[in-house]
Design a protein around this nucleic acid. Structure first.
Lengths: 192, 192
DNA sequence: CGTTTATTATACCGTTCGGTATATAAACTG
DNA sequence: CAGTTTATATACCGAACGGTATAATAAACG
């Protein structure tokens, strides 16, 4: 693997394990078996590494979610595809997804949060759009599209976090039934 | 205010704004108008400050949630009281609640996460217990108590995060109707 | 009053922080 | 081949890091 990619991967793993601020540049290059000037040659700064990581990896998530939003079917199918898109990205690179979540919830004045913010906003707006698209089926949502989106993302993210807790070694894939159950609970509540 | 309390408050504000790892001990004592040995006299270490902060402030949340769990009424009333308990703690000290959330989602190998973990687990178990208590009303949940708890916490937390985004200056309180709407959506889904 | 105890500051410790000036080696390019 | 560009390492920078030895101050106590 070329050193640029190697550095990105090592940084991703360390950021995921310890958090952006707790990881030093020295630590990243040591893990990659390189030295600091190489990292600064490719990325210019520590935050540049995170920026590049987000630019590179977020595209996968974007494509997945876009495809889910363009899918055919009723609202239930839409939500299923959306949840499936998350889970797919989560399965494909669990460390990156978890890193994204940790950054999403991190302190607002933190440099890393400011870097990740536009991506999170974009992601969030895509989900809101999903509910907007379903308006003819759901009827008048009374401007509750945002609340639905917030609730849906919150439910799915928490579920993935919980899944990680139970399966720390990433041995078990999330099944279609589990996704369906999640969507069902979100749509019809706890008595369903 | 005595210096011990002053230090805790300054630390809380800085941790909330910038994140635990991004804040230096020097920064905390400067904000309090004191010097480092004072902080080390009271708390022994930087992580000791966070530990003390959690011990002190989490008790409020614990009391609130316990009271909600002991309340009378059906499952709906229970969930309402539970959500109300969160919101109450959130309103009382938004910075602490947001700090708690940020730590909850932070990297697993991070020292700050390890410190907060038992508190989050305790909190989480309390909510699971809430659903267990409702089992006679909800019927056989097929072991879905945990899934419900995960979903409920996720929904409420995301809602609070979202509320913070819209009202960064903490001018608007969360109304009972908003809480009811949230609980309703969780219980009966999006068609309710 | 003298002595102890609690609290705070001055000044410092070694280490690590993010970042860089400079050199070098290899790979292209004319 | 000479010259340029790409990619890497050695060795260093000042600043900030978490933490502490020591001393001064102030209050409490006998």
């Amino acid at each position: 693997m070329e050193n640029r990619t190697l550095l990105l991967q090592c940084a991703k793993e360390l950021f995921y394990e310890k958090g952006y601020d707790a990881v030093g540049v020295q630590e990243i290059v040591e893990k990659a078996g390189l030295t600091k000037p190489t990292l600064y040659y490719y990325f210019g700064s520590k935050i540049g590494v995170l920026r590049t990581l987000l630019e590179t990896k977020f595209e996968e998530l974007r494509v997945c979610v876009r495809k889910a939003l363009d899918s055919e079917g009723d609202i239930r199918a839409h939500l299923y595809h959306l949840a499936e898109a998350y889970c797919c990205c989560f399965e494909r690179d669990r460390e990156f997804y978890m890193l994204l979540m940790a950054l999403f919830y991190s302190a607002r004045e933190n440099e890393a949060y400011k870097t990740v913010r536009p991506y999170v906003t974009e992601f969030y707006e895509m989900v809101v759009q999903g509910f907007e698209n379903a308006s003819r089926e759901l009827g008048n949502m009374n401007g509750r599209q945002r609340q639905f989106a917030v609730g849906f993302i919150g439910t799915v993210n928490h579920y993935l976090l919980f899944h990680c807790e139970l399966d720390p070694n990433h041995e078990e894939e999330i099944s279609g039934e589990q996704i369906a159950s999640l969507v069902n609970q979100f749509m019809y509540g706890i008595f369903s």
